[in-house]
Structures are given as C-alpha cells and as structure tokens.
C-alpha cells in the first residue's frame, strides 16, 4: 500500500520476514510519536532544554522507521539547535509543524497496523 506521509522501507528491512516484529515495531513507533509531541511541548514550556534534547535525539532513530523526510529534517534542525545550545531558535513554530505533521502520519501508521 502506498501512503502520502509514511515510507516503511527501512522498517521492512529491519523486520525482514518477521511479521510479528514488523507489527511490534509499528506499534512502538506509533506510541512513541504520539507521546513525543505533548512531551516536547511540555519541555519547551518549562524550558527544560536537556529534556527536549533527549526527546528529539531519541526521535531521530524512531523517525527512520517512519520515513517522512519533512519530519526527519524538522527533527534534525531542532536537534542541531539544541546541540549548539541555541535556545533562541523558534522551537514554538517547529513544534506546531511537528504537531501538524504527526497527525496524518499517525493516521497512516494506524491504517498500516489495521491491515
């Protein structure tokens, strides 16, 4: 099945011919993405930069399984700023975009899980 927001080639490479592993990975990715957005917003609101860095860093691996280039780039931009301790960057706008993109991504992941 072809999707607009997700591309599961890497996930398929890792899962290989193990459908159970594939399913588990999809669930874990789905859960992590869902949890990440509110966690990031909270960390930004509290200006907990290390916490925000930790979430964004962790998402780097997770996003590889989702295969959405826009979200991967967005995550990388945030990660670069956090590593350079550039806390003046417009994280608010980035997180809005994150939120905006993660909705349809989660929806497509859900469809894949249902198949």
């Amino acid at each position: 099945m072809t999707y607009q927001y997700i591309q599961l080639a890497y996930l398929d490479t890792i899962a290989g011919d193990d459908p159970q592993l594939r399913q588990t990975l999809l669930e874990m990715v789905q859960a992590e993405l869902s949890a990440a957005v509110p966690e990031m917003n909270q960390a930004l609101e509290d200006q907990q930069w290390e916490e925000l860095h930790s979430i964004v860093h962790k998402l780097k691996s997770t996003l590889a399984f989702i295969g959405n280039q826009e979200l991967t780039t967005l995550n990388q931009d945030m990660l670069s700023c956090l590593e350079e301790r550039n806390y003046e960057a417009d994280f608010g706008t980035w997180l809005s975009k994150y939120d905006h993109l993660s909705g349809p991504i989660r929806k497509e992941l859900q469809q894949e899980l249902a198949n």
Partner: peptide, 16 residues
C-alpha cells in the same frame, strides 16, 4: 541502549 525501539531492533537483527 536506553531507547526501547533500538533495543528491540538491535536484538532481533543480531539474533537473525
């Protein structure tokens, strides 16, 4: 590794 997805992926990949 603290990231659960990575833990699982590494374990399954190596065992395979």
């Amino acid at each position: 590794e603290d990231h659960q997805i990575n833990q699982m992926v590494i374990q399954k990949t190596l065992e395979k």
